[in-house]
Write a protein that binds this DNA or RNA. Structure first.
Lengths: 194, 194, 194, 194
DNA sequence: TGGTAATCGAGACGGTACGTCTGGTCTTCGA
DNA sequence: TCGAAGACCAGACGTACCGTCTCGATTACCA
């Protein structure tokens, strides 16, 4: 994306991104340095600057490119009644990894507009799309404007979870997350029946 | 807050905070430096370190201490049907000032746990409390657990707005924000009637 | 010299040396980089490292191999009374080219012992030999040790010119150089007559 | 000289210059780095850049400011018949320290015109002046132009020594240096008697 | 009212990291 | 098959800030 060619060094691109991921999870995005990534990856600094314009862009790639990482990532769409999904999200946002990764992506996003766009396109938007699709099936609504309503509902659902994590030491519990889910579904049903 | 005594310098404490505010709004939190604040306020660096342990703590004070700033701040509670309030919030989060300030507080929060606690206590919690109170009046619900439900609803309402702003170039429109409000109220009403 | 094979590239070996010469004369030895030479010669860096072990060695070759360069080089031996020759040397060491070239060879020499040896053998020693031969003819001296004396005299003659150039903004004038010549010849004559 | 104020840190200015001197003598000017000096002196890089505009200027100060260093420096004027002095110079230029220091000053001089001026004013010119004064006493000459002749003689004397050191692996021996001295004096005497 | 302490601005200090540049080696790919 | 092109690791460059530490000069309080 930043360049069609890819590093071909001994460790290569994946080694670099993997080092960056480890460092973010260990010590957080604020403590992350380009020199630290280079050292951890056994790579010259210039190699990083050759492929990524900034620390934020590198970190975005680190968490966006490899679907296997992070382990229990919030990247699947809800299924069935959604309860299992929303509790898994609550667990993820309560975990050290989930906290580190989400904060890292938020910070990277805040620093650089182009990173923000990329993170949205490749990360946030797909998750929201999955939620919206599931909501459309779960609470059918043929009304004009239903799509906008579902979009707002998805923002509320994911937004409440993220907002809690960013602003509170104790993120939403599984029960709290389920409460959010129920309110969203109840609201949508009422609107659909209106 | 960090010290009962106050600077006696030409500009004083308020001059420092005011300089910090201007710099954040002009150039963003990432570009903010302690040296920059000191220079802008015509103050020695040591004076800043005397009263604030970190850049984040200073910025938190800058936006928390003076109720007059930022101008159209999201700090009042909703009234009536809430529509005017929620549209004002959408406007605020769409503005350059609202974006800068919210991002700055989010970043400061991410860097330092004690700043996070302070921002929550002095800023986020009061806003949420105002919303919760208004929700309790607007959608009366005597059921056990209603408080938890209202807390979740407040997180959804404010969370959706903040989440949108943080992750999207185009924050929620007034209409979108109103949609969120309606869904929250509809959900709460259904739950209350259950 | 460092390799019997020769580049076949567009410009070839002479193109490389010529680029190096131009760059030295334009910007000086300190500002010279291997990358710059490669770029100027339209050649890969590896091609340079294939034939020269260091920047210094390349520069030495650049000024030693081609007798046509630099234009009015100090490489001829004195003739007749030596006045014309010594004034030509003064002019050369006063010129931009003479200054650049001499400084470049001095720096290259200081960095690398093997370059020093090569520059001496191929450049300094022949010049000194020419001077010594001319002195032996001009001030005949059959005494034992006359050769040592002539060697010292040659060092004095050329050394005074080089020393002046290296240490002073204004190198020896033609008159100053002639003064040096007269002193050397007077000293030798006195010694020969002793 | 570069600034009227002086470093006041734990180790101070002299510690920095002393570290620079050691490094030059150990490994030569080419291998010297600003970071190396800073590390050896236990000082931040910025402190060096605050007081000296370049590595060359720092090195010039290192060898010019403290008259006690280098130990057997060529900075005294000749006395008596000059033989002891000229042999001491030959020894100095044959020593590892003399070689390192002279090459370092020559390189620093070649890189930066302002360093060249300073080295000349504070180092080369005083030595030459001492030689000229001694020559004027040793070989009295009331003729017009005698001063120019003595200046040329001083350049020949010191120049031969420096030229030999810079261009040859084996600098002038004591005997060779004495030969130079005799030739200079003989030449001057002849000229004075003319 | 004059003397003494606290506090100020200013900015030097030892450091860390920045983003860039170059050195010297190694790999790719077109002619 | 060989060389241009340029990526690679390494590490120094000169700069920006960090948070700490002197400096005088300027209060402000007490004698």
């Amino acid at each position: 994306m930043h360049n069609v060619k890819r590093p071909r060094g001994a460790r290569g691109r994946e080694g670099i991104l993997s080092s960056a991921r480890s460092l973010v999870i260990e010590s957080g995005y604020e403590a992350l340095t380009v020199e630290g990534i280079a050292a951890a990856a056994g790579v010259g600094k210039q190699t990083l600057y050759r492929w990524w314009p900034s620390k934020g862009a590198l970190v975005a790639d680190a968490f966006l490119d490899d679907p296997a990482i992070p382990p229990s990532f919030a990247s699947t769409a809800p299924t069935g009644d959604g309860v299992a999904w929303v509790r898994a999200q609550a667990d993820y946002f309560s975990s050290a990894v989930g906290t580190s990764v989400t904060r890292a992506l938020t910070s990277a996003t805040a620093e650089d507009e182009s990173v923000a766009i990329r993170v949205h396109e490749r990360f946030t938007a797909p998750i929201l799309a999955g939620i919206i699709d599931w909501l459309a099936i779960t609470v059918p609504d043929a009304a004009a404007g239903a799509t906008e309503r579902q979009r707002a509902a998805a923002d509320m659902l994911l937004g409440a979870l993220v907002f809690r994590m960013l602003t509170r030491s104790e993120p939403l519990s599984g029960d709290g997350a389920e409460e959010v889910l129920h309110l969203v579904l109840a609201g949508l049903r009422t609107a659909a029946a209106r």
